[in-house]
Design a protein around this nucleic acid. Structure first.
Lengths: 208, 208
DNA sequence: TAGATTGTTAATCGATTAACAATC
DNA sequence: TAGATTGTTAATCGATTAACAATC
């Protein structure tokens, strides 16, 4: 079955909302409650879930623990994903040190940089290695994900090196399109800012 | 006219690609060339541009300088946008110190945090202020954009404070939905990672 | 039973793409 | 003129939403 790309991102959002509901001590919820919290339509939530199965009880709703387990399996979060951060600048170090990522089932096991002076330093438990050691490290440590935090000029080259080394997916923070055969997710701060300024201007135009 | 939301983000990507072409010394380009660089269809580029006017010459293509100017106006980049970063943790400091943002017409003029020990320290030229001084600072300095880098628990409250202080748009890095009346763009690292793991798993399923 | 809420179908809406006349 | 490339229309494709039977 074809699954809309936006539906996947929403599943991840539902997952987080369910975690929150659980923290609040709730045991069951409904598409209506989730929809209200997230500002979307209830039928969209039901539709998104229906791509993968029937997880609720009619007339009752969803058991939170159960739905969390199901989403965990769908999103591939049953085991911890080993990741590396390439580019140990401010952003790379911030990502590597970000606790939220570990909580969500991702483990940044090392950073890589071309700057020899950074090699050996640590960000939490993760050590900074030299780029020359990338391939060996990825293979020996079974790293699955590379987070690219290098300047745009070297992003394509770094992505190719990561793919060659054997990573299976790339999270790209560099402001450029990268072309590899493994899946890539882009986090584009500059583009998001520009989309924001466009909306601000449009909004002002409409106010009048 | 209704403009597809994805089209706006693509305009920002075209803008960046044109900057790159210019750096390479080129003076003209075509929808075909841009499409090849960006891995999308040429007719999509022409369609996206057509929402805003006619910027090319039939049989010839686009003048890069001219198209850059037009996109600059569309995206609202003709003047510098003053921004603040709220939350002076690792991520907040990394964003504030990120040179790419300044190059693109955004100026982070200050950071804010509730931790008094951080107050007075600097990230490049931007000083860290206490949250209590947010409203006064925003008003006096004509700040338009707030970048939220606080934990999810305080994100909603901080967003409301920023809105009340007078910012016109919010870039939200906190992993939660925030509800305000000004435009919000979300940069959701955890969601992007989960979307990535879903794709990795699906891809493996198909290979067999 | 009556009320609630799911899962799913069908309708609507929105976005992308193909195709081509216009024109440089 | 011949070749190239735009701008735009119409067709297609994909995503969202409304509505409701199923059922707890």
């Amino acid at each position: 079955m074809k699954i809309p790309k936006p539906a996947i991102r929403r599943l991840a959002v539902y997952y987080r909302c369910l975690q929150r509901l659980k923290e609040e001590g709730k045991e069951k919820t409904s598409s209506k409650e989730l929809a209200q919290r997230l500002g979307i339509k209830a039928c969209q939530i039901r539709k998104d879930l229906s791509y993968f199965g029937e997880f609720g009880k009619r007339g009752v709703g969803y058991n939170i623990d159960n739905l969390l387990e199901k989403l965990k399996a769908i999103l591939g979060l049953e085991s911890v994903w080993k990741a590396i951060v390439i580019g140990a600048g401010n952003l790379g170090k911030a990502i590597a040190g970000y606790k939220g990522i570990k909580e969500q089932g991702f483990d940044v096991v090392a950073l890589f940089d071309v700057d020899g002076r950074k090699v050996g330093k640590k960000v939490n438990e993760a050590e900074i290695h030299h780029m020359d050691d990338l391939e060996e490290f990825v293979k020996e440590n079974n790293v699955k994900i590379a987070v690219i935090c290098v300047p745009k000029e070297s992003a394509q080259q770094v992505a190719e090196a990561a793919e060659k080394a054997g990573v299976e997916g790339i999270l790209n923070f560099a402001p450029t399109v990268i072309n590899v055969s493994v899946p890539v997710e882009n986090v584009d701060i500059a583009v998001s800012l520009k989309s924001l300024t466009f909306q601000i201007i449009r909004r002002k135009g409409k106010e009048k």
